[in-house]
């Protein structure tokens, strides 16, 4: 994945705010990439542009040579459908579908989905599979949300502050799960976080500040999620 000179601003005139001011980097297939930065650094905007749900003002994003900006709405939907899995800070589960069914919502979209039961086992949700979202804890809900994204067997897993609303222990569990998916299924992971510690588990860390890439580091000594501390 190539991100070339990506620029994006919001508002007009005096209220104009440049969120991305020429971002360049690339992500290799199967890589665990973390977009690190404080609030307002433009990392979520960057993730949304990569995910094809927001548009840049200039520059481009290319996946295997295909530029997203050349795609129309239908092609973008197809791109997301076939290649991307999304995990948000908020779990956005469908309240009147149970755990298993919420995961099936993801499986439906894929031509090569993983086995739902296997994903439930991997995520430790077997015993909760017939529960409704409101019967689960925040961590359990986030597991379901990861399951929904992973079951598609996507090429890229987009995670936007997946642990932002979770406690320390649960956060580590969730990170371990994402790590597992990356390793087990070879899924490329792009994760947005403001948590410095999380960057240690990544292959590739992009540090953003004020809309530009301050550091683009390849992590030589990855730390497993279970050993992270903050």
């Amino acid at each position: 994945m190539e991100i070339v000179d990506l620029k994006k601003s919001f508002g007009d005139g005096e209220a104009r705010q440049e969120v991305l001011r020429g971002v360049d980097f690339s992500v290799k297939r199967g890589e665990f990439c973390v977009l690190l930065g404080p609030s307002g650094s433009g990392k979520s905007t960057l993730l949304n542009i990569i995910g094809g749900i927001d548009k840049q003002d200039s520059g481009y994003v290319a996946i295997s040579g295909d530029k997203l900006e050349d795609m129309d709405e239908k092609q973008l939907t197809r791109y997301r459908r076939l290649h991307l899995g999304y995990v948000f800070q908020m779990y956005n589960l469908i309240p009147n579908l149970n755990v298993k069914e919420n995961i099936e919502v993801g499986a439906y979209l894929s031509s090569k989905p993983l086995d739902v039961e296997e994903v439930l086992t991997t995520l430790g949700l077997q015993e909760h599979k017939y529960k409704y979202p409101n019967q689960l804890s925040g961590g359990q809900q986030q597991r379901v949300s990861i399951g929904r994204a992973v079951v598609k067997n996507p090429d890229i897993l987009m995670c936007d502050e997946p642990t932002g609303a979770l406690d320390y222990k649960t956060s580590k569990e969730i990170l371990a799960l994402i790590e597992d998916c990356n390793r087990k299924y070879g899924t490329t992971v792009i994760m947005v976080t403001h948590n410095e510690a999380i960057s240690k588990m990544a292959d590739h860390v992009i540090r953003l500040r004020d809309g530009v890439v301050r550091h683009n580091i390849t992590n030589e000594a990855k730390v497993p999620a279970s050993e992270l501390d903050w």
Partner: peptide
Amino acid sequence: KEATVIGTLCASGYTK
């Protein structure tokens, strides 16, 4: 009411 769910579904590749 279901705006965020719809947003997630759209982001996941559900068609209109």
